[in-house]
């Protein structure tokens, strides 16, 4: 295996006076999907926000492509090629779908071929191209949030719960788009509570509890061991 695209070691993050991340060690291999799993409130979102720089790590180090990014401001991290889809989608509601996409292609104009690819993954975005993003349905907003990260090539994609609260048909649309992204060779760090989706997409997995990574291995290993899931995540996720 080549050197990892992202490596966190001993990362601690505070939110206000709370000590949330308590020494996260995480390795994200180059190429493929790494699942970041764990019960609610264990620190998955905080980990992604620390990687993009919305929270500043208090100690520990973050290395991206071998570069130390621990003290780098968010825009600089993004320009190194880290794309981020936040849990709340971060849609600019007063802007049109088109304007959201134009902004997402920060380093140049949107490429037509890429846009066609995005439209084929998310047809409603073509239909509502000129509409205000705030008028979209929840599922369509989620499509737009993924489409934005697809608007240009990124080195690493951080995606936080892309199927949360979506109807089953939209969940499969999302999963299809992510699979498509993966087959193009992308490196993805994905937080996903839908275990079926996690199982279908994940190559490797890391499980968090209480602000730490408590287990890391292959997704197949985790998916094949119900007792391990039960122990790590407190519920049999096969129920999904």
């Amino acid at each position: 295996m080549s050197d990892p695209i992202l490596e966190l070691s001993g990362v601690h993050t505070d939110i206000a006076q709370y000590h949330i991340l308590q020494g996260v060690d995480l390795v994200v291999p180059r190429g493929g999907v790494t699942m970041l799993l764990g019960r609610n409130g264990v620190g998955k979102t905080t980990t992604l926000r620390t990687i993009i720089g919305h929270w500043q790590a208090k100690s520990g180090s973050l290395r991206f492509n071998g570069t130390h990014i621990t003290a780098m401001p968010t825009p600089a991290r993004a320009r190194l090629g880290i794309g981020f889809v936040p849990e709340d989608m971060g849609i600019f509601s007063d802007l049109t779908v088109e304007e959201n996409m134009v902004l997402a292609a920060a380093s140049g104009p949107l490429e037509q071929a890429r846009l066609e690819w995005i439209f084929s993954a998310f047809p409603p975005l073509r239909t509502f191209w000129k509409s205000e993003a705030g008028n979209l349905s929840g599922g369509q907003k989620q499509m737009l949030s993924i489409a934005r990260v697809m608007a240009e090539e990124r080195q690493l994609y951080l995606i936080d719960e892309p199927t949360k609260g979506l109807a089953p048909a939209i969940v499969s649309t999302m999963a299809g788009a992510l699979r498509d992204l993966k087959t193009r060779g992308a490196s993805i760090l994905l937080v996903e509570q839908n275990f079926a989706v996690a199982k279908a997409l994940g190559d490797t997995a890391a499980v968090m509890d209480d602000g730490r990574i408590v287990w890391a291995g292959t997704m197949a290993e985790l998916a094949g061991d119900a007792a391990l899931q039960e122990r790590l995540m407190g519920l049999s996720m096969e129920a999904h």
């Binding site: 968010t74 825009p75 971060g90 600019f92 802007l95 304007e99 902004l103």
Partner: peptide, 18 residues
């Protein structure tokens, strides 16, 4: 566009590299 987006969600604008 960046200004209008920034008024709505500055964090996201930064995450896009601006």
């Amino acid at each position: 566009l960046i200004v209008r987006a920034g008024v709505q969600n500055g964090e996201m604008v930064e995450a896009l590299g601006y």
